[in-house]
Simulated assay, not measured.
Amino acid sequence: MPKREQRQAQKEQRPNKFWNFVPGTEEDPAQLILYGTIASAESWWEDRVTPKQFNQELDALGDVEEIVVRINSGGGDVLAANAIYTRLRDHKATITVKIDGWAASAATIIAMAGDKIQIAKNGIFMIHDPSMTIWNTYTAEQFEKMAEQLKTVKQSIVNAYTQRTGRDEEEVSALMSEETWWTGEEAVEEGFCDELLFEEAETIIENGSMLIVNSVPIDITGFKTIPRNVFENKSTTKNRGKKKVQNKAEDKKGVQMSEIKTVQDLEKQYPGLVTEIRNEAAEAERTRIKDIKNLEIAGFEDIVENAMFEKPITAAETAMKIINKQKQVGANYMAEREEDVKESGVKNVQHGSGEEETKNKFDAIIDEMKF
């Protein structure tokens, strides 16, 4: 066999496979396992072996009533995801999607094919705009054409989201542009998933660039925003650098994570963090007191003293209190002055007759004048 044909045969024997079909049994339905990156080096539309192999394995499941699609993926090839989404939507079996760890980017497109979408309580669900990797040199016109292609791809994704969730296109488009991250609970609340799984995902971040979710490594360097709060403070989700910390398991200092209930516990576990928080709080308090002290003027010492120590408020709030007090003092002064004028009786004093006498003298002179 010529070497070219041998290479082609080898390629067909080793397709760019990123899935695994598990035939059903009497007890369990058939499964499609999608763990890790969807597609890889070769694009779905260029690699004719990959979609052909996928379709053959899907058809080989036979006349099944249900297919469980288990997802734990950070995404990958949008074209591959769209093709899988279409095949699953077109299949007569009930499609149950279970997000075991997380579904991000292109993986969420496949998730939308589910008649029911379940996600781990502390799983991750992320949607964002599609992007394109550039490996060559291009003209401005070519870049403009690629930009239009990305807009078309985005619209296809928006269509999948809106069809499944019933949400407005503009709203979904905005969420994608913002690169939106949700926990499992939030994904259910937002309508992108239907219900929570009883399983809980175990998440570890290594070196800030690799995320390991239920033992599946996922490169996160390509994402714009990684909100750490999505991974922190969850019952079984840990973020401890390279070290893996199990829920209710002891770390190297012998302190259980579930035992951090007081400031003292936190300081023992993270002394540097507590010191930093205290220093920042002390500096903020010194600045607050200094700013309020600069507002002190005669007659309003009680307001300043109260704002600094007894009922602490900001300098801006203190200034407003002083201004309001000044306005009240001014109003009281004007009221007291008016009362003093009334009590003096000065308004009741009558004018003398000098004006009338002066007028009569002028009249007499005019009468005596001869014309």
Rank of each mutant, 00 (worst) to 15 (best):
residue 295 L to K: 10
residue 141 E to N: 10
residue 266 L to V: 04
residue 213 V to W: 08
residue 102 W to H: 14
residue 122 N to M: 05
residue 134 I to D: 02
residue 101 G to Y: 05
residue 334 M to E: 06
residue 83 A to N: 09
residue 279 N to F: 09
residue 41 A to R: 11
residue 214 N to L: 12
residue 315 A to E: 09
residue 278 R to D: 12
residue 178 E to A: 03
residue 73 S to G: 11
residue 270 Y to I: 03
residue 30 A to L: 04
residue 89 R to G: 03
residue 193 C to E: 02
residue 173 S to Q: 08
residue 116 K to T: 01
residue 217 P to A: 04
residue 292 I to N: 02
residue 148 E to H: 14
residue 123 G to L: 04
residue 287 T to P: 12
residue 222 G to N: 00
residue 193 C to I: 03
residue 240 R to W: 09
residue 361 K to D: 05
residue 332 N to K: 12
residue 229 N to D: 12
residue 325 K to I: 01
residue 335 A to N: 07
residue 50 T to Y: 02
residue 33 I to W: 00
residue 213 V to S: 15
residue 294 N to W: 07
residue 298 A to Q: 15
residue 118 Q to W: 08
residue 270 Y to K: 10
residue 132 M to N: 01
residue 304 V to E: 00
residue 340 D to P: 05
residue 287 T to H: 08
residue 91 H to S: 15
residue 300 F to A: 12
residue 318 T to K: 05
residue 120 A to Y: 01
residue 101 G to W: 08
residue 217 P to F: 01
residue 245 V to E: 12
residue 183 T to F: 04
residue 262 T to S: 13
residue 192 F to T: 03
residue 199 E to F: 09
residue 19 W to H: 07
residue 3 K to A: 15
residue 225 T to H: 05
residue 251 D to L: 11
residue 210 M to D: 09
residue 209 S to N: 13
residue 140 A to L: 12
residue 164 R to K: 07
residue 180 T to C: 01
residue 24 G to D: 03
residue 66 E to V: 05
residue 350 Q to P: 15
residue 278 R to K: 13
residue 168 D to F: 02
residue 81 A to N: 00
residue 338 E to Y: 02
residue 51 P to T: 07
residue 313 I to T: 06
residue 335 A to V: 04
residue 365 I to G: 09
residue 282 A to P: 11
residue 370 K to M: 13
residue 347 K to A: 15
residue 74 G to Q: 10
residue 204 I to A: 15
residue 239 N to P: 01
residue 141 E to A: 10
residue 227 P to E: 04
residue 189 E to Q: 13
residue 321 K to L: 11
residue 369 M to V: 10
residue 1 M to V: 11
residue 286 R to N: 13
residue 160 A to Y: 06
residue 66 E to L: 09
residue 47 D to E: 04
residue 61 L to F: 00
residue 228 R to I: 08
residue 255 V to C: 07
residue 104 A to K: 07
residue 328 Q to V: 03
residue 143 F to P: 02
residue 21 F to C: 05
residue 145 K to W: 02
residue 239 N to W: 10
residue 362 F to E: 14
residue 362 F to R: 13
residue 199 E to D: 15
residue 296 E to Q: 15
residue 151 K to I: 06
residue 304 V to N: 01
residue 353 S to Q: 11
residue 219 D to W: 01
residue 205 I to M: 13
residue 205 I to T: 04
residue 272 G to R: 07
residue 235 S to E: 15
residue 127 I to P: 04
residue 71 I to L: 11
residue 50 T to F: 06
residue 55 N to Q: 08
residue 233 N to M: 13
